[in-house]
């Protein structure tokens, strides 16, 4: 219900709480474009659902590691255009792993097929990194437990290692060489990592949408917070990402919808056939020193229909990236302070609750059947306004701890 006291969501408390039952998005029978089902990796719709489900604060703590990694990477790029390439000679022993050289975690997964015949692998999809990788047999050093059978490259008739002399190999941030086979390494902000052979094989996004000779990492030494996912799909803007590698086929176009709860499903599409109704566009900005990331221009924030008094310079100085793998939006402190103040004022009739990890504006809705939450809107360059869904405004720990789902950076220049 909108329009009360400006612009508010009026909702049932129960709609905020996660369900234990999957409520799948209704799919039309036929699409003329590639469409994958997106699920939250910890929810009941996920093929990877784990027991026990991580606590909300655990997910936020992992998110803090990812954001620290993003900051380090962007800061490092500002002083050094490119990381030195290192050469090693053995899988898992000579490739240097560098904190913050890439970024990971993320909570949304899709299932795609690798090899011939294809083997389904459920992977995390991530617009904040480039390299697609999966765990591979024989797991020369070690693999973590995953839901799907671990991919066996020797059983695929189309698998081939990439040569050390290939441009694919020189495009890797971290690479090595073993008997002329190219080795890759990725390490993420939470110290998760994958190391193995950089290879090519057929990637099946759907039964009819097949990408031959797709370059990906075949991981022989993998460890970290990937849950039971088989690996990761890199949808960044860099040379080796799925988006760039399929540019001729899909024109560099992809789209996704992240579901409102962990018990519902969304989609990931490739190509121009995405659902186009009501879509408004803002300019995509790129930075040569950090080509992986998609930047956009955040200009202003509104709460309950009232634009907050934040100078555009505050947003311009920092810059903004969009990332499917970061959970909570981070704002310059000046902007976050204004948002928090306006939100707290609009929520002054509710009992406050203690902070939840990085979230400092929380409410206890115990005893309430419905609540009214002020709408939050983000305004981007080109006059595009994104009025957030309620699921995009709040982060629910429990009914007694529901928090504003924003956090601040360290300082305005961060």
């Amino acid at each position: 219900v909108r329009g009360e006291q400006g612009s508010y969501h009026k909702i049932s408390i129960h709609s905020l709480l996660p369900s234990k039952v999957c409520s799948s998005f209704k799919e039309s029978a036929n699409f003329n474009f590639t469409r994958l089902k997106v699920t939250h990796r910890h929810g009941p719709c996920s093929p990877l659902r784990s027991h026990p489900t991580p606590l909300p604060e655990q997910i936020l703590d992992e998110d803090r590691s990812r954001v620290d990694s993003l900051r380090r990477r962007i800061a490092a790029a500002a002083t050094s255009a490119k990381l030195d390439r290192q050469r090693g000679s053995q899988v898992g022993s000579k490739i240097p792993v560098r904190p913050g050289s890439s970024v990971s975690t993320g909570n949304y997964v899709v299932t795609v097929g690798f090899g011939t015949p294809k083997r389904d692998q459920t992977v995390i999809f991530d617009t904040g990194s480039d390299i697609t990788w999966i765990q591979c047999q024989p797991c020369v050093t070690y693999c973590y437990e995953q839901q799907d059978p671990i991919f066996n490259p020797s059983a695929s008739s189309t698998y081939a290692n990439i040569s050390c002399s290939s441009t694919y190999c020189s495009d890797l941030d971290i690479s090595g060489c073993s008997s002329s086979a190219c080795l890759y390494g990725v390490q993420y902000g939470d110290n998760s990592f994958s190391i193995g052979f950089f290879a090519q094989d057929t990637l099946s996004l759907s039964p009819t949408d097949v990408i031959p000779k797709f370059p990906f990492g075949c991981g022989e030494r993998n460890r970290g917070l990937f849950g039971k996912a088989a690996g990761l799909m890199g949808l960044g803007h860099g040379k080796l990402s799925l988006v760039t590698q399929t540019y001729q086929k899909y024109g560099g176009v992809f789209a996704y919808c992240l579901p409102p709860t962990s018990s519902s499903t969304g989609y990931l599409t490739f190509g121009t056939g995405y659902p186009s109704s009501k879509v408004k566009f803002t300019p995509m900005v790129t930075d040569a020193s950090t080509p992986t990331f998609y930047y956009l221009n955040l200009m202003a924030i509104s709460v309950a229909g009232q634009r907050l008094p934040i100078s555009a310079k505050v947003f311009n100085d920092a810059g903004t990236i969009i990332d499917s793998g970061t959970v909570i939006t981070r704002l310059p402190p000046t902007a976050y302070s204004a948002l928090r103040s306006a939100f707290r004022q609009a929520m002054s009739s509710y009992k406050t609750a203690s902070a939840l990890s990085i979230l400092d504006t929380c409410y206890d809705f115990t005893g309430h059947s419905t609540v009214s939450i002020p709408t939050v809107a983000l305004q981007f360059g080109g006059g595009v306004t994104m009025e957030l869904d309620l699921s995009g405004t709040l982060y629910v720990g429990s009914q007694s701890q529901v928090c504003l789902a924003f956090a601040a950076n360290g300082d305005d220049s961060d």
């Binding site: 909570n107 995405y274 009501k278």
Partner: peptide
């Protein structure tokens, strides 16, 4: 750097068009 995280993107059709250098948002998509 500011980061637009995945909570805030929920239910939007988020469109990346690298060739036209634009990012789109469509509400209520899922």
């Amino acid at each position: 750097v500011g980061i637009l995280g995945n909570v805030q993107q929920k239910t939007f059709n988020v469109v990346y068009d690298v060739s036209k250098k634009k990012i789109g948002f469509g509400p209520g998509a899922c």
